[in-house]
């Protein structure tokens, strides 16, 4: 499990509550959504598009698209590229992103 060595440099050390599958999580704000989830031991964030296999963050730099999640109802967001904010409703990306949801 990932543990914090000291306060995260990219943040003002403020915490806030986000919701993962409806359950509240207290997270350090300002870091990426992926980092916030990993700190809570959540390494599986989606189901693969074809077989439904569990997947989690891999490259953490926006290249691999393995960390796709749903954020506030918007599917297919890269958790490693989105800064976590208080109140975010996060859910696993299940399967492929449906085209009709892309336009909001």
């Amino acid at each position: 499990m990932f543990r914090r060595l000291d306060p995260p440099p990219e943040t003002g050390n403020e915490t806030g509550t986000v919701f993962w599958k409806g359950a509240p999580l207290e997270v350090m704000l300002g870091q990426s959504v992926a980092a916030a989830l990993l700190e809570h031991g959540i390494s599986t964030v989606r189901e693969s598009a074809k077989s439904g296999a569990p997947r989690g963050p891999y490259c953490l730099m926006g290249a691999c698209f393995e960390c796709l999640v749903e954020i506030d109802g918007m599917p297919g967001r890269q958790a490693c590229m989105v800064t976590v904010r208080a109140g975010m409703r996060l859910a696993p990306q299940r399967g492929a992103v449906a085209l009709d949801t892309l336009g909001e």
Binding site: R4, D6, P8, S43, G56
Partner: peptide, 20 residues
């Protein structure tokens, strides 16, 4: 899940001070 690139692990260390 649990497998990451070394670069990914380093990103977590650099920007979030997270280490496993």
């Amino acid at each position: 899940p649990g497998v990451m690139s070394v670069g990914g692990a380093q990103t977590l260390l650099k920007s979030s001070s997270l280490a496993a």
